[in-house]
Write a protein that binds this DNA or RNA. Structure first.
Lengths: 202, 202
DNA sequence: GGGCCCTCATGACATTTGTCATCGCCGGCC
DNA sequence: GGCCGGCGATGACAAATGTCATGAGGGCCC
């Protein structure tokens, strides 16, 4: 009995090579490929794979968003995320979205094939190193608003614009930023953004 | 006559898959693989490949740095860069380092094989879209000091620290930042950093 | 020599940002 | 009911940042 796999990655080079390698395993069959988030959802709808292997960063909708959509629409389809640089927060988001496997691209194809089988069989698999990172990063000390405001500050926008985009008073924005900065032990909001990014809290 | 290829990419999944696919071409032979910059240089020294296919982002030393080293040490070895997200500046740096090919990971393996052959034959190949981006981005309007100071401002450090690290007076730093911001049409230094990054000017 | 640009600096000024105290409102919890 | 924490806001103040004018020195080119 073969496992029907959907492969989604915007890098054609990787996707094609991966499809070829996984195709060599006689119990795996790549039934569909996609180069973007929306395309992945459409292909899944059309081909109803057993396992969807999703790249984290894709145009349109990232892997976690796709996983969320698939979970609602195709409950029988298990999802897993493959990523280049795994941040702790991504892992948390992914697990919350019902993702069953989370692996970095540093694993071998052989190993990936094993993990696909395990996920199909119903187990979960999380890369040990990424898991350790996620645990050591701990939970976010930021409240919902603090995280939101920090996110809006990410691209260097001035307070006035953040306030406009968040529909808040400028003073309130400065308060949230200030408390976020102090909670993160940063010396200003820009380093705070960087720290929160590294820990996956935004 | 077969082309001897060195493959360097820190993502085992991609590297292995790519090696397998390129190995299918009967005029290409992957003679060495590396997962980091220094390793790539060591492997090249040991195996003397005809073409080195280098990922842009690798631990230790990035693809361009490796290319520079190889150019000096193995003039007979042509280098090419494969990258996920190609920024205009990277392309410029790469060409300056004597790289003969520059392609995004969105090409197919088939296409990559053709390009490897072309590079081995002595031609150059640059992805048309990346080339267009590089041209439209134009040359950096920043002076050497402006770029340096902007770089130091990248991680959100306050002016005082930038001044210390650049051995400049704080006032001078603010002047350079101010002129960089105005040249880039940004509204503050942080968006200026982002813009310069996008255009590959830092 | 005379421009022109880059480098580095200083001083002055307006604006933005960071910090703090304080307030009202709501929701959960003991 | 009382307490606490999050949310949203205001006002005030200090510090950092952005902007501008101005100056001296050096290198380059015509």
């Amino acid at each position: 009995m073969t496992v029907r796999v959907l492969l989604a990655d915007d890098e054609h080079l990787i996707r094609g090579a991966l499809a070829a390698l996984l195709g060599l395993e006689d119990d795996l069959e790549v039934v569909a490929e996609a180069a973007s988030g929306p395309e992945a959802i459409a292909m899944a709808r059309a081909h109803r794979p057993d396992v969807a292997v999703l790249d984290l960063q894709m145009p349109g909708a990232d892997g976690v968003r796709v996983a969320t959509a698939l979970r609602a629409e195709l409950p029988g389809c298990h999802t897993m995320i493959v990523t280049g640089h795994g941040r702790p927060g991504h892992l948390k988001r992914a697990l919350a979205a019902g993702v069953r496997g989370f692996v970095p691209k540093t694993v071998s194809a052989q190993r990936l094939a094993e993990i696909i089988r395990a996920v199909h069989a119903g187990s979960r698999y999380v890369d040990p190193e990424l898991a350790a990172d996620a645990i050591s990063a701990g939970d976010s000390p930021l409240t919902a608003r603090e995280a939101e405001v920090l996110e809006l500050a990410a691209d260097g926008a001035p307070v006035a614009e953040i306030a406009r985009r968040a529909s808040l008073s400028p003073g309130t924005v400065r308060n949230y930023l200030s408390s976020a900065v102090s909670k993160l032990g940063a010396e200003n909001r820009h380093t705070a953004v960087r720290l929160a990014r590294e820990r996956g809290w935004v």
